[in-house]
């Protein structure tokens, strides 16, 4: 499968099944498009009509290069993975990551919050006890098989409303590491309201990553992330986040915002954060009921695509300069990256990754919490709903008609099961608006890599 596109002056050709990515000239771009359907003579003739200024021997040369790439298994490679998909879905049940809902309560009243200020579809406001937290870690260790690297994310609501329990769970995890051959990676997501020096110091010692929620420009942030009283939160949290990011040496964190229909010019929010000194930035499209006035609509796509293009071009301009930064959705690893198994299975929700409520109930991921049909069991008795687990286990890029022939499948892994369910009532579908944005972001990310390679070659 081939995907080819033009962006920011670059002609890019992706060979999807091998993972090879090529930057080509105009002639080769046009030849690759017709290479499989025309004979050599027909192709040369077609190119003579389209590019009369180019000599035939140059066309012969380009044709030969395409054939070489094909012989090297770097173009027109067939899918070698789908025949093994049945074995793939028979893999053993292993849990390697938990999302601990440490607090089903929040001190902000964000308009777009999928968690309803921490109450998740009408659940009571409550905090996780240390006993439940410890039991969750025991459950993880017991169900992790031979996996050594385990992950625990402190999520909410707002986790800092239950900070003493967070610390207790981390300390318990470090004790478990000594008695089991396991390594915990703890992460924390916070709105920053309660951040202080003591919390930063502990987090810098123990948290592999922290996610700091801020939407960008003050007026954008304050419109969607007020206190319950309606008061603005930007001036409260921004100085704390700047201090926190600096204290982590500008690594192992993200400032993370949400853009909505209110700020389709979201590149300005990204650059606002970058110009304040943040180096690790994510600003992501809201996913919500399409009836909400701030929900993104299909008709917004051209505007959003242009915004991603503008942001990508700006990042190229800043490459290797003091004001460069990382943008989460443009980060792509072409030289390494995960293996095909991982690319096919994605996040592992409902199988390798589970969410735990304050009382110990298990759900496929944080996005499903509170949806009664998705209750999987609890940390005391384990996973009881094996039928549901099997549904998630069989969820992969080949189980989704929209994904099987999509060029982005090995970079996106079939998208988010929760978004698919919310859009179509089925985890094996795909959230169409999200797909279009994801494909655009992958195209931009690869263009940035092409531009960086060119700039490196000029040095």
């Amino acid at each position: 499968m081939i995907h080819q596109y033009k962006n920011n002056g670059y002609n890019i050709v992706m060979d999807v099944n091998s993972g090879a990515i090529h930057v080509v000239d105009d002639l080769m771009y046009d030849m690759i498009e017709k290479f499989q359907e025309l004979s050599k003579e027909e192709l040369i003739q077609a190119m003579q009509e389209k590019h009369p200024e180019i000599a035939v021997d140059v066309m012969e040369e380009a044709y030969s290069e395409i054939q070489d790439l094909k012989d090297q298994q770097a173009l027109f490679v067939e899918d070698a993975y789908e025949p093994y998909i049945d074995e793939f879905t028979d893999r053993p049940n292993v849990v390697k990551a938990l999302c601990l809902h440490i607090a089903h309560d929040c001190n902000l009243a964000c308009e777009y919050c999928f968690a309803d200020e921490g109450t998740y579809n009408g659940m009571p406001k409550e905090l996780m006890s240390l006993e439940v937290g410890k039991k969750a870690l025991d459950f993880l260790v017991e169900n992790s098989g031979n996996r050594r690297n385990l992950e625990v994310d402190f999520f909410g609501g707002e986790p800092l409303l239950n900070w003493e329990v967070v610390k207790g769970i981390v300390n318990y995890g470090r004790e478990l590491e000594k008695t089991h051959d396991k390594k915990f990676r703890f992460t924390l997501t916070t709105n920053g309201v309660r951040l202080n020096d003591e919390i930063m110091e502990f987090a810098n010692k123990e948290m592999g990553n922290v996610v700091l929620s801020i939407d960008g420009r003050p007026e954008v942030h304050n419109r969607m992330r007020p206190f319950p009283s309606g008061a603005a939160s930007y001036d409260i949290v921004m100085p704390k986040f700047q201090k926190f990011a600096e204290s982590r040496n500008q690594t192992n964190y993200y400032v993370r915002g949400t853009f909505t229909r209110n700020n389709k010019d979201f590149a300005k929010d990204v650059l606002h954060l970058a110009d304040l000194g943040f180096k690790e930035i994510s600003v992501e499209p809201v996913v919500t009921d399409p009836k909400e006035p701030y929900a993104l609509q299909e008709e917004d796509l051209p505007e959003l695509f242009a915004e991603y293009d503008e942001l990508a071009a700006e990042m190229v301009k800043r490459y290797k300069k003091d004001n460069e930064f990382n943008f989460f959705h443009f980060m792509i690893d072409l030289a390494g990256g995960p293996c095909v198994y991982k690319r096919l299975s994605g996040c592992g929700s409902g199988t390798e990754y589970l969410a735990v409520t304050p009382t110990g109930d298990l759900y496929p991921c944080h996005q499903f919490v509170g949806k009664k049909d998705f209750l999987m069991g609890n940390i005391f008795e384990g996973v009881k709903n094996n039928e549901l687990r099997d549904q998630f286990k069989k969820c992969n890029v080949y189980s989704k008609d929209k994904c099987r022939n999509c060029f982005a499948k090995f970079y996106c892994s079939g998208g988010c099961a929760a978004n698919s369910y919310n859009a179509h009532g089925n985890i094996n579908d795909a959230y169409d608006l999200g797909c279009e944005l994801q494909k655009k972001r992958i195209e931009c990310a690869i263009m940035i890599k092409a531009a960086e390679a060119e700039l490196d070659a000029e040095e």
Binding site: H22, V23, V24, F328, I332, G336, P338, V340, A450
Partner: peptide, 29 residues
Amino acid sequence: MKHVKTLNTKKLCNGCGECQTSVGNQTCE
């Protein structure tokens, strides 16, 4: 080659499960 520059030479690795929960920017562990 005159008409093409290949950006990546490493083909997809055709698992151990030790990598982080996520895919495009993930590192193999």
